[in-house]
Computed example of a mutant assay.
Amino acid sequence: MASDRKVYLFEDVSKHSKTEDCWLIISGKVYDVTSFMDDHPGGGEVLLSSTGKDATNDFEDVGHSDSARELMEKYYIGEIDSATIPKKRAYIPPQQAPYNPDKTPEFVIKILQFLVPLLILGLALAVRHFTKKD
């Protein structure tokens, strides 16, 4: 690691969160693991799931080997400015889908939500037309 190391802002690192451009923050260091996506034993999705945050806990929880830690040096590109890392990630609750007891496919429900009011309106107009006195 060179003494003229680059320091990145969290905001800049978090933009690299795609299969073709993937950076991770682990233990205060920034790694460009893009070229490692296909070779990662757990698959590229594991790496992608650790983007946009400090991935230190994700990395440590797995219990990587010494050789994996040595391999990381190959992907090291700089340090993270720790003052720019958000202290807490905002919790966004998952959107609750409407209760669907009979497991009707979502698209059928959407079609029915659109068609039923139209059918009711059409029925009301037909009743009005045929019961109208001249």
Rank of each mutant, 00 (worst) to 15 (best):
Leu48Ala: 03
Arg89Cys: 05
Phe36Gln: 06
Ile25Lys: 00
Glu20Pro: 03
Ser27Thr: 08
Gly52His: 07
Val62Asp: 03
Leu71His: 09
Gln95Asn: 11
Tyr91Glu: 12
Lys87Cys: 03
Ser27His: 14
Val62Ala: 04
Val46Lys: 15
Lys53Pro: 02
Gln96Leu: 12
Ser50Arg: 03
Asp66Ala: 13
Pro86Arg: 08
His64Val: 03
Asp39Arg: 06
Gln95His: 12
Lys87Thr: 13
Tyr91Trp: 14
Ser82Ile: 13
Arg89Ile: 07
Glu73Asn: 15
Ser65Cys: 05
Glu20His: 13
Tyr76Pro: 01
Asp32Phe: 05
Val46Gln: 11
Trp23Lys: 01
Thr34Met: 05
Ala55Ser: 13
Leu71Thr: 03
Glu60Asp: 12
Pro93Ala: 04
Thr19Met: 09
Gly42Asn: 06
Tyr91Met: 07
Ile25Met: 04
Ser82Thr: 15
Ile80Trp: 03
Arg69Gly: 02
Asn57Asp: 15
Asp61Lys: 12
Lys53Asn: 03
His64Phe: 05
Ser35Tyr: 09
Lys53Arg: 14
Ile80Tyr: 01
Ala55Tyr: 04
Asp66Tyr: 09
Pro94Met: 06
Ile77Pro: 00
Asp39Thr: 02
Ser67Asn: 12
Asp39Cys: 06
Pro41Arg: 06
Ala97Ile: 12
Lys29Tyr: 09
Val30Lys: 00
Thr51Ser: 08
Tyr75Cys: 03
Arg69Val: 04
Ser49Ile: 09
Asp81Ala: 10
Met37Pro: 00
Glu45Met: 14
Leu47Trp: 01
Lys88Asp: 13
Met37Phe: 02
Gln95Asp: 11
Leu47Thr: 02
